[in-house]
């Protein structure tokens, strides 16, 4: 019973290297979650996705005008998750782009749009996978958007400038996706000595290192697109509750992005 790889002997001396190989580009690879885990994560994601599909169809029916902006949010996820960027740890990973849509349309929409992106990558790129789709959707399309949205709302409610909240939301969506991925891996492959928490601690601390600069990039790119949207789609943003009033948004935008840049 020779395991898949021929080079098992030489590689991965440190946990760090091991980890980068398990999940070098964020999603868990095809067949690499034990069946029970795959099924459980699939079952956990399904209700969110069904709910998201319902919200999506309702949104499109009630506001046909927002279809385009929805498409643009999905497109943003498409672009960002295709961008494998080098990070400080010397390996590559990619952002998720789910923060923008979560802020604009609330997280349930992203459960759908994110899953579509994952499906595209699983089917055409052998990146992620069908058996790990449930787990990957849970981290990238559900947990990430909710975490980002929650932070965004919290900051907005406490009076933070729009762009500062957008940056933090996108940053949190990106980083929490990775945190959930490491938790999923730790559950599936607990450390022989220190168990789940030990594995989570190791996974989490190492993952965070690679992903923090990418989460910053994602935050900056999301702010960039949001600035374009503020210029071009004021009416739509007001309807969605992102912009409160026409007059103050300009100032907020300026101060917020100043703080960010």
């Amino acid at each position: 019973m020779v395991p898949v790889s021929q080079e098992t002997g030489q590689g991965a001396s440190t946990i760090h290297e091991v980890l980068e190989r398990i999940c070098p580009v964020m999603h868990i690879a095809e067949g690499f979650l034990p069946p029970a885990h795959a099924v459980t994560w699939g079952a956990a994601s399904a209700p969110f996705i069904v709910h998201g599909v319902r919200r999506l169809t309702r949104e499109v029916r009630e506001h046909p005008g927002s279809t385009l902006l929805l498409g643009a949010s999905g497109a943003f996820t498409f672009v960002l998750s295709a961008l494998k960027l080098p990070s400080v740890t010397g390996s590559c990973s990619h952002p998720t782009g789910t923060g923008l849509g979560a802020i604009l349309f609330r997280p349930p929409m992203m459960a759908v749009l994110g899953t579509i992106t994952l499906l595209f990558q699983a089917l055409l790129l052998a990146h992620g996978g069908l058996t790990t789709l449930g787990a990957n959707a849970f981290s990238m399309a559900i947990a990430g958007p909710w975490a980002g949205y929650a932070l965004y709302r919290l900051l907005r409610r406490s009076g933070a400038p729009l762009m500062a909240a957008v940056f933090s939301g996108a940053f949190a969506a990106d980083l929490s996706t990775y945190c959930v991925t490491s938790a999923q891996l730790a559950l599936a492959f607990p450390d022989p000595v220190s168990g789940f928490w030990g594995a989570l601690g190791k996974f989490g601390s190492i993952f965070a290192f690679t992903q923090i600069p990418l989460a910053v990039s994602e935050g900056l790119l999301t702010v960039f697109v949001m600035r374009l949207l503020v210029q071009s789609s004021r009416g739509e943003l007001t309807r969605l509750g992102v912009l409160v009033s026409g007059g103050r948004a300009g100032q907020r935008k300026a101060s917020g992005s100043g703080a960010v840049a």
Binding site: G11, E17, R21, V25, F32, F189
Partner: peptide
């Protein structure tokens, strides 16, 4: 700067 999905297998086999 590898994104090396292919090396994934090695890693889990080692854990």
């Amino acid at each position: 700067f590898a994104g090396a999905d292919a090396e994934t297998e090695t890693a889990i086999t080692e854990i």
